[in-house]
């Protein structure tokens, strides 16, 4: 068992009284500490032990919710809305611009593990559609130029 995983799980589970009712916020907080935006199998096992629940329940919850991941992802997650309004507003160009700028297809992570580009369903930014969500921030009304600037800025921030 990796001591740093154990330590993180202990501090967060203690904060939530080791009560499994709080599994969702516990997992969200654990994942927020992961540079790769995921919860590894070993961590899931540690949490299950600490909360005295089965590993399968932890895995069930991680894999059920879109915001949680059992697989490593990029440090920055770019979510392109692929729901009704953004389709009506022709999000194809936007998808293409991001793929071009990052050099990957939707569903992939850049080789430097900096960005993961994925589709997502409506996040309530239909008034600025087609929209993307980069981590927790929403960007709409994008042009080719703005996408370029956005990615450049994010690359700068991360380095």
């Amino acid at each position: 068992m990796k001591p740093e995983l154990e330590q993180l799980a202990e501090s967060i589970c203690a904060k939530y009284d080791y009560d499994a009712v709080n599994l969702l916020p516990i997992l969200q907080e654990i994942q927020s500490h992961s540079a790769r935006n995921y919860i590894c199998e070993e961590m899931a096992r540690i949490i299950a032990q600490k909360l005295d629940i089965t590993e399968s329940r932890v895995y069930d919850v991680i894999t059920y919710f879109s915001a949680l991941s059992s697989e490593p992802r990029g440090e920055i997650i770019i979510q392109i809305c692929n729901s009704t309004t953004c389709n009506v507003n022709n999000n194809r160009d936007l998808i293409h611009w991001f793929e071009e700028e990052l050099g990957i297809n939707v569903g992939e992570t850049t080789p430097d593990n900096k960005f993961t580009l994925i589709f997502t369903h409506c996040f309530g930014a239909c008034d600025v559609s087609p929209a993307v969500r980069i981590d927790h921030d929403v960007y709409g009304m994008l042009t080719r130029e703005k996408v370029k600037e956005l990615i450049a800025a994010k690359r700068g921030v991360v380095v």
């Binding site: 499994a20 009712v21 709080n22 599994l23 969702l24 916020p25 516990i26 997992l27 969200q28 329940r57 069930d60 919850v61 059920y64 919710f65 879109s66 915001a67 949680l68 997502t120 369903h121």
Partner: peptide, 23 residues
Amino acid sequence: SGAGSYVCGEGFAMCESMEGKSG
């Protein structure tokens, strides 16, 4: 905070997720 699930807008699914289960 929800964790990204449409069905959790349904009352029981919402309760399940607040109880630390899948929605």
